[in-house]
């Protein structure tokens, strides 16, 4: 270094203005709606994992002498049309949906992120063609697309995971693409190009870390809709198959007797479904607010 150098400016000795890194989690833990949502989610998670070992009755066992009995000390939530204990079935009913929905969300998020990165980064004709295909996918209501494919392939757990995941991929891709486009014009991308980095490196190492927050939010929102969609499919007969105590399936099996006044056969399942989707949504919303700071 030459002795002609400029004296070190004082700015480098000044304390760096530091914003706490852990701010997001701290903010979340102070958000009531997050705490409520997380608690409900945790409750259903525990039920999904362990309910069969602590519920009072076998959720699959019928009791034809004791059908449609109203809630009582013996059967807290009553029994259904073939005498199964509704309380035990509701608690174990989270199992299938809490397996399928997160897996489908994972499939959708990974596929969508890949598509969004590629279309947003390259633009041009790749974007035009893929974008058009995605718009076609999006021009059909999700339930219809899922229905179409499930009719063709037959409903099974892996099929439902893949189908719902792929149906969500265009939505995730749209979000990711928009995020990539707003990063794409920033100079750090040009700087990487100028030092000879390849497209894959730029997408994954440079751009992806910066767009993780919207992807995480998108994934939690999608999880809510995955539960919504899979529950609806189960209700229509194209999702979880009998004899699962799945809520959507149970409601489909029993809502015919609702008008007869046997409300307990469906009401607890509807409350369970609603609590789960709302909980996921509260978590997603709080996360979004926390990340937006």
């Amino acid at each position: 270094m030459s002795d002609l150098s400029v004296r070190a400016p004082a700015e480098m000795t000044a304390p760096a203005v530091d914003r706490p890194q852990r701010g997001t989690l701290a903010t979340l833990l102070r958000t009531p709606s997050f705490l409520v949502g997380a608690a409900i989610l945790l409750f259903w998670g525990v039920c999904a994992a362990f309910a069969p070992s602590f519920v009072p009755y076998d959720p699959y066992a019928d009791d034809l002498l004791n059908t449609l009995s109203p809630p009582s000390a013996e059967h807290w939530f009553g029994t259904d049309q073939i005498g199964r204990d509704v309380f035990s079935r509701v608690l174990t009913g989270a199992r299938d949906i809490l397996t399928i929905a997160p897996l489908a969300t994972l499939v959708g998020t990974v596929a969508g992120t890949a598509i969004g990165l590629v279309t947003g980064y390259f633009g041009g004709w790749i974007d035009a063609i893929v974008g058009r295909l995605l718009e076609v996918m999006l021009s059909l209501p999700l339930i219809i697309v899922a229905l179409l494919v499930l009719v063709a392939l037959g409903p099974s757990t892996p099929t439902v995971v893949v189908v719902v995941g792929l149906v969500f991929a265009p939505l995730v891709a749209r979000t990711v693409r928009a995020a990539v486009l707003s990063e794409r014009h920033l100079d750090y991308v040009a700087a990487a190009t100028v030092r000879g980095e390849g497209a894959f490196t730029i997408m994954v190492m440079e751009i992806l870390p910066n767009i993780l927050p919207p992807i995480i939010v998108e994934a939690t929102v999608r999880l809510g809709y995955a539960i919504f969609t899979i529950a609806s499919l189960s209700f229509l007969g194209f999702g979880v198959q009998p004899p699962s105590p799945d809520w959507g399936l149970s409601i489909a099996e029993n809502y015919g007797v609702l008008v007869g006044g046997f409300w307990w056969t469906v009401v607890f399942d509807t409350i369970a479904t609603a609590s789960l989707v709302v909980a996921v949504n509260l978590v997603a919303e709080s996360l979004q607010r926390a990340l937006a700071e």
Binding site: I251, V277, V280
Partner: peptide, 19 residues
Amino acid sequence: VAGLSLTVIPEFVSSIALI
């Protein structure tokens, strides 16, 4: 919060409550 929570409730669930 109300809008957001209502949006994710499947139609068959709210239908049953409404019925």
